[in-house]
Simulated assay, not measured.
Amino acid sequence: MPKVLIYSSQFCGYCRAAKNLLRAKGLDYVEIDVGLDPARRHEMVERAGGLRTVPQIFIHGRHVGGYDELAALEREGKLNDWLADALKTYAAGASGSEAFAGADER
């Protein structure tokens, strides 16, 4: 299963929408709440190329972007391709550790 990581905050409607979309596709994800954790927010900003808004979503280490980008991938029928690519990488023996670099599953 592709590893999905979502940086979020508690009262973020876009975060909630992204998690709903992921659940609707039957995907599990690891969520990191950056709302009250400056170190985690800094980690997110670094991994997301300077983007500071939540959510920031990664599929098997590949940066998707926020909810708008995730929803666009789904609308265009490209999200399944991203997931399939992640599965191929995972099946080919990639450790997958890059998907959660610096992230623990709390």
Rank of each mutant, 00 (worst) to 15 (best):
E43M: 12
G61E: 11
G13N: 07
H60S: 08
I32K: 04
T53W: 03
A72S: 13
E31N: 06
V34N: 00
Y67G: 00
A71S: 09
Y90S: 09
G26E: 03
E98I: 10
A91T: 14
P2C: 08
D37T: 10
A17N: 01
N20M: 14
S95T: 15
Y90W: 13
N80G: 15
S95N: 12
L36E: 06
E43Q: 14
M44Q: 03
R40G: 05
P55Y: 09
V4R: 00
A72T: 15
V54W: 01
L73A: 04
L70D: 03
L51P: 02
G102E: 07
Y14C: 04
L73N: 02
G102L: 08
A101S: 11
C15M: 04
K3G: 00
V64A: 01
D81R: 13
A18P: 07
C15R: 00
Q10T: 15
G35E: 05
S97R: 13
C12R: 05
G61H: 09
G50F: 02
G13W: 03
R47V: 06
K78P: 07
G93P: 08
P38L: 06
D104N: 07
Q56R: 11
W82E: 02
F58I: 00
A48W: 04
E46R: 15
D68G: 07
R41G: 02
A72R: 14
H42K: 14
A86E: 01
D28S: 09
L22S: 01
S97P: 03
Y67F: 13
Y90Q: 10
K88P: 04
V34R: 00
G102P: 05
E74H: 15
C12A: 09
M44S: 02
F58R: 00
A91D: 11
L73S: 00
V30Y: 07
D37I: 12
K3S: 05
R23C: 07
A91E: 15
G49F: 11
R75G: 03
S9W: 08
A91F: 09
L27T: 09
A39C: 05
H60F: 13
A17V: 00
Y90G: 02
P2T: 12
T53F: 07
S8L: 06
E43F: 12
G96P: 01
E105R: 09
A94M: 14
H42W: 05
H63N: 12
G77I: 12
V45D: 08
N80W: 13
G61C: 11
P55W: 03
R41Y: 11
A72K: 13
A103K: 04
T53K: 04
V54A: 01
E43G: 06
A24F: 08
L27R: 04
F100G: 05
A84M: 10
A71K: 13
R47S: 06
L70N: 01
V34C: 02
G77E: 14
Q10Y: 12
I32E: 02
E43N: 13
R75P: 03
V54F: 08
G35H: 08
L5H: 01
G26Q: 05
R23F: 03
N80P: 10
E46V: 15
A101I: 05
H42Q: 13
T89K: 05
E31I: 02
Y90P: 00
G65L: 03
E31Y: 09
